[in-house]
Simulated scan of single mutants.
Amino acid sequence: MNLKEIYSELLTNIGFRESEIEQNWLDLKKAYSNKSRYYHNLTHINDMVECFEIYADQLKFPNEVLFSIFYHDYVYKSSKKDNELKSAEYAVKILPKETNLNSKLVFDMICATQLHQYNEIEDINWLIDFDLKILARDWNEYQIYFEQIRKEYRIYPDFLYKPGRAKALKHFLEHEFIFQTKSFRDLFEEKARANIEKEILLLT
């Protein structure tokens, strides 16, 4: 299935009417296709959905995780620090009154993608890891990723951007682990750390 089909099936399963699904898809597509989005776009969502499909059998709340994937970057402005909160508020607001989805959990899941820190709810850890899997791509793909991030922050000159980006990257390295699930640590931790260290060198 393509992204729209996966999205439509999810919304059908959690109580949306057909007319609402089409409009919500158009709204979602418009938000993620904004010309200022070089990384936080539908390609990123598609990558996360692919991760979700691989690990769905590990999840206790698959619908909540999938819905959170679609909406976790719905609001994204590089100059703002409340994108995740605004995205979470929007995601919960559009849910039907009669839904089998845990709206509180969705809200918490989306907010958790801001700090990417360990959570007692394991499904949140899976969501965080899906979001960060880009960090463990092959170097040429990782390089495309950080160049896309730079474009999203193009309003900032290098003398502001580089120290800020380096600080954010070092924050990942200061923790015992970048990834929160054992599966992702075993597969991707080493590669992600190597990529981050290499990018930091380029920034300094």
Rank of each mutant, 00 (worst) to 15 (best):
L3D: 07
K4T: 07
I6L: 15
Y7H: 14
L11S: 10
I14S: 08
G15M: 09
E18F: 05
E22G: 07
L26N: 13
K29C: 08
K29P: 02
K30N: 09
A31Y: 08
K35A: 12
S36R: 03
S36W: 00
H44T: 02
D47A: 04
F52S: 00
L66F: 03
L66A: 07
F67V: 03
S68D: 05
H72M: 07
D73W: 04
Y76N: 09
K80H: 15
K81E: 10
D82C: 01
E84V: 03
E89R: 15
L95M: 15
K97D: 14
L101H: 07
N102T: 10
K104Y: 11
L105F: 10
M109V: 14
A112Q: 06
L115E: 08
Y118R: 09
Y118W: 11
E120H: 04
I121C: 06
D123H: 06
L127S: 11
D129L: 01
F130V: 05
L132F: 01
I134S: 06
L135S: 13
L135A: 14
D138K: 14
N140A: 15
E141N: 12
Q143K: 15
E147D: 10
E147C: 04
E147Q: 13
I149D: 14
R150S: 09
R150V: 07
K151H: 09
R154N: 10
P163G: 12
A168M: 11
L173D: 06
Q180S: 02
Q180F: 01
R185G: 04
L187P: 07
F188L: 15
F188H: 14
K191T: 13
N195R: 01
I196W: 02
E197V: 00
K198D: 06
I200R: 02
L201D: 02
L201C: 00
